[in-house]
């Protein structure tokens, strides 16, 4: 247990603390993307409320794509990853912990920022609560599925745009269900079916993706 806690979790948190600025940048990007929409479409409160959920979720997906690169990049380049793979700890376990801590340190600030985004886009309180629920269930899904593609592209020099090309189509169902949950909340309709579907996708991803990430990291080591 100390092996995982001291060797992996604490190390990840220490690294995240050292790379604070790199963690904050995707969030600043998200804030700016959201700001572009009222400027580009017009500040009508009704329009903003209608497009708001979609805008926030698209911005969340794009910014998570930007932030995800750091997941394995440094450890791959300096060789820490190969040392971890030779430590005898199952690679899937290492992958799951890394993804989870990444989610933890990148989503915390996002949640703190979310009321501001909701205010910018004129979301009502029920809509904001629904948005919060979808973000809580949906962002770990982004991280777990995205990490597979990060593992595959980590050995490439110019992986950034490729990562987006690989992942955007995969994230479409999440976008659809998440925005529709917030839309339902706007109409005061129940939205737990959507949350249940997102939750189901999250459970599937959590069960399968650590092994897929482990395999893709092995492919990258070859």
């Amino acid at each position: 247990m100390n092996r995982l806690w001291h060797g992996v979790v604490k190390r990840e948190l220490a690294l995240a603390y050292q790379q604070k600025t790199e963690l904050v940048q995707p969030l600043m990007f998200m804030l700016m993307v959201v700001t572009l929409f009222p400027l580009g479409i017009g500040p009508g409160p009704d329009t903003l409320q209608r497009i708001g959920p979609g805008v926030i979720w698209i911005a969340a997906i794009l910014s998570s794509l930007l932030g995800m690169e750091r997941l394995f990049r440094d450890d791959f380049q300096d060789g820490s990853l190969e040392q971890m793979m030779l430590s005898g700890i199952p690679v899937s376990m290492i992958a799951a912990i890394k993804v989870f801590t990444h989610w933890l340190v990148s989503t915390g600030p996002l949640l703190i920022m979310s009321p501001l985004l909701a205010m910018f886009l004129n979301l009502t309180v029920p809509m904001y609560i629904a948005l919060l629920c979808t973000l809580l269930l949906g962002t770990p899904l982004l991280s777990f599925v995205g990490a597979i593609a990060v593992g595959l592209t980590v050995s490439l020099q110019r992986g950034g745009i490729l990562l987006a090309l690989l992942l955007i189509p995969v994230f479409i169902p999440l976008l659809i269900f998440a925005t529709s949950a917030v839309d339902s909340a706007a109409l005061q309709l129940p939205y737990h079916p959507q949350l249940a579907i997102i939750g189901a996708m999250l459970l599937l991803a959590m069960a399968v993706s650590p092994f897929a990430i482990a395999y893709s990291l092995r492919v990258s080591q070859n």
Partner: peptide
């Protein structure tokens, strides 16, 4: 070839995390 050391951490931390990983 690669040192397996994280450049942002110091030598002591790097080695102590590594030792924990390798039991």
């Amino acid at each position: 070839h690669k040192s397996g050391l994280s450049s942002t951490l110091n030598a002591l931390d790097n080695l102590s995390y590594w030792c924990a990983q390798h039991n």
